Simulated assay, not measured.
Amino acid sequence: MSSESTASMRSPSPSLPYRSTGRLAPWAPRFLTVFALTLMAITVALCLPVWTGALSSDVLNAATPLVMWLPALVLVAVHLGARNPVPVMRWAGLGIRPAGRTSAVFGLLLAVMVLVPALTIAVTASLGLVGFAPSEEAAATAPMVAPMIVVMMAATLGEEAAWRGYLQSTLAPLGFWRSTLVIGAYWSLWHLPVAAAYWTDGRMDGREVLVTSVNLLLSAVVLSAVRYLSGSVWPAVAGHAMLNTVLVFAYSHLITSTADLPDGAYWGYALLTWAVWGVAILVLTRMVARRAA
């Protein structure tokens, strides 16, 4: 066995080439199809009682940790059923070596997840689209954000081990951009049944569903970028947890409610938010390309 093969076996995750290197593995198309259809069917079945009015969307809130673990559970079941010739843990990128690089990417990601809402709020508030209005609970809630990230990682691991872990490795021969956009598009699509349930229950309106779908696609690029930069899925797990804690805190406690904005201000706010995400994506993907070079 060559030294290169030995090194590959010892690496914590498979190689993730930046550029396309060829076709997917022979087992991949069937696996991806079965996984995607099975996961969507289960998700739709869970949301159907809310769509029909038989249950309140409060049930989905209570079941959120289970729903977030569905991708990993379905993935493992399909993997075992198909007898895919890859080790699940390694293919999901669950190693942390080299630890120094993974830690550096964690720090980079934290900076991104703080700067994105900070810049968004600063720009949109300065233009009068929203008001900078810290809530009465903001000061008391802020110290809880950091521990909540750790707690939330227990849930986001169930998604990221599948999305930016196993699936990113499986689609890696397509190159960074194609694999990332395929995963991001399906990730956003997978959230639509849940968003539709909240829309049916009156907790979201149509424009919120659309904006959330675009936000998911943009943040998916960031999460894939940190997987590429670190070689590990753990920064993506943390990044996903930060989306659900840092950004939620900032937009819920530091500005006036965007749900109450008139359409002009709402879409102006959304476009500027996407522009800030675009800057973050540009910086991170350039780093991915430079590392590949």
Rank of each mutant, 00 (worst) to 15 (best):
E4W: 04
S8R: 15
R10C: 02
R10H: 14
G22R: 12
L24R: 10
A25S: 14
W27E: 08
A36E: 08
A41F: 11
L46P: 07
V50F: 02
W51S: 10
A54F: 02
A54I: 11
A54E: 07
S56Q: 09
D58V: 12
V59W: 03
M68Q: 09
M68N: 08
W69T: 08
L75T: 10
V76N: 02
V76L: 15
V76Q: 00
A77W: 06
V86D: 03
G95T: 00
R97N: 04
R97H: 09
P98M: 12
A99P: 00
S103T: 13
A111F: 07
V112N: 08
M113A: 01
L119K: 11
T124G: 07
G128W: 08
G131P: 00
F132R: 12
E136K: 13
E137M: 12
E137I: 11
E137A: 15
A138D: 10
A138Y: 07
A138E: 02
A139E: 06
M148V: 05
I149V: 15
M152E: 05
A155T: 01
E159V: 09
A162I: 00
R164M: 04
G165K: 14
S169T: 11
A172K: 04
G175R: 08
T180P: 04
L181V: 13
A185V: 12
A185H: 03
Y186V: 14
S188P: 01
W190Q: 00
H191I: 03
V194Q: 11
G202H: 05
M204H: 14
V209G: 06
V211G: 02
T212A: 15
T212M: 15
A220E: 01
A220D: 01
A220Q: 11
A225I: 12
V226C: 12
S230G: 10
S230T: 06
A238E: 00
M242F: 13
M242D: 13
A250N: 06
H253W: 01
L254D: 06
L254R: 09
L261N: 05
L261F: 05
D263F: 07
T273M: 03
V276F: 06
G278P: 03
A280C: 02
I281D: 08
L284Q: 04
T285M: 06
R290T: 09
A292S: 15
